[in-house]
Design a protein around this nucleic acid. Structure first.
Lengths: 233, 233
DNA sequence: AAAAAATATGAATAATTTATGAAAATAACG
DNA sequence: CGTTATTTTCATAAATTATTCATATTTTTT
């Protein structure tokens, strides 16, 4: 396995302008940036060693997911995937491609920088696994899998995204609208309350007592929140 | 550098229809919106102070990027750029100039509102926490939670809003009518005195001695006020 | 100190909000 | 194309909160 290099970032993006902007923003933060316009080139420079890779899902020569898998085969490097539409993130998450994070275009460059930093911080610590209540509940984003007291729990894609969204920020309260925006996309035309149904189903799968949930809690009049330490409020 | 104003948003957009829709959506979320149809006017009202600016890249009198630069020269205010169609160049231009985020038309107004909020949160440093009497009493808006001497106090939504409204301006006296307008909405048809009931319930939860409240004080003949330093009047 | 005015309080009732099971619509898959 | 899994909607039950009201208490005025 090849060593990764401190502040080197590889940007795989064929839209030159976007690549440039991303480069500019990252360099302003003291990262060194290499741009590859094609998947082929990306794979060629890989062995230079990068701390992180930003990868467009749509490239002229190869599918982003293939590149991602190719990278993952030999390198243990965090990847942020760029997708054009909100429904593509399903593919990113669902297919076990193994991206560590993803952003839907159009994205704010500041947010990208923030995520790069966050991801580097996270990765340095360990992998992409959220663990709660002393490993009683584990959310493994790279494997798209949840484990409850060590035994696997099967969540549907929407359920997983919902739980993940909440679990990433324990204690923070999300309104149904916020959750819809994040999980179903800004263009979702349906009803707020569909969130309730998913919450119910998730609770059924991860809570000991569905009537008295210890993880996924209701905040009356506002929305929902996740609590990592079931006892606390 | 000029101070920015809490919930004031400037929309610079010449297409009246779009401006109106944006305005309506933002006002529904309790923002105060000023619309400028031309760049010239935008620059003129700038000193009123805005928390955020939404700027169309294409304007009749001046290029959006010039306005953007002009704004940035004197104001440190977050900017969301609106660009027409999915013209890549425009998109990219917006970012290069130093917009914080951008959206491609046609966009969903819901998404715009969500991005506005996200950007404000990000810029503010996500400090939605009010702290009083040396952290004896803490109001945390993102967690929708009040803590009294470090232990959580559960307030109902109305109670929370009421307390928040008062606590945001310690010392300022609010009439019941003002409170009703802010908390229950201008269209509330009920009785003033419902506020009293909420005050009672809040006091029950946060005051040591409900008969001699140290935070939530009555101003006889007028209304109520919040005092951050319990000793002072 | 008594009367008047305003606020506090507890309890009853009304109104909202959430949970839930099942049906209908959609998407995914072979 | 039919079959299955998933997502969404819907109707209703259950839970929680908001409002009102009658009465007690406090504050102000005279």
């Amino acid at each position: 396995m090849i060593t990764m290099n401190g502040r080197n970032i590889l940007v795989v993006e064929d839209e030159k302008k976007i690549a440039e902007i991303v480069k500019a923003y990252l360099e302003k933060e003291d990262f060194r940036v290499t741009v590859a316009e094609r998947g082929e080139k990306a794979l060629a420079v890989l062995k230079e060693g990068f701390a992180l890779i930003i990868l467009d899902l749509m490239l002229p020569d190869m599918a982003g997911e293939d590149i991602c898998r190719a990278i993952r085969k030999d390198f243990d490097v965090p990847i942020i995937m760029l997708t054009a539409k909100s429904d593509e993130d399903d593919r990113v998450r669902g297919l076990g491609i193994g991206a560590d994070d993803y952003m839907v275009k159009p994205f704010s460059p500041r947010e990208l920088v923030a995520r790069v930093k966050a991801l580097l911080r996270r990765v340095k610590g360990s992998k992409d696994v959220l663990s709660f209540n002393g490993s009683d509940l584990v959310l493994d984003s790279t494997r798209f899998e949840v484990r409850k007291k060590a035994s696997p729990v099967v969540l549907t894609p929407t359920e997983f995204k919902l739980l993940q969204c909440l679990a990433e920020r324990p204690g923070q309260v999300f309104t149904r609208l916020q959750l819809v925006n994040v999980i179903l996309g800004y263009d979702f035309e349906g009803y707020d309350r569909t969130i309730d149904a998913h919450v119910k189903n998730i609770r059924h799968k991860i809570e000991d007592n569905q009537r008295k949930p210890s993880y996924l809690k209701t905040v009356y009049g506002i929305g929902y929140k996740f609590t990592g330490l079931p006892d606390e409020d």
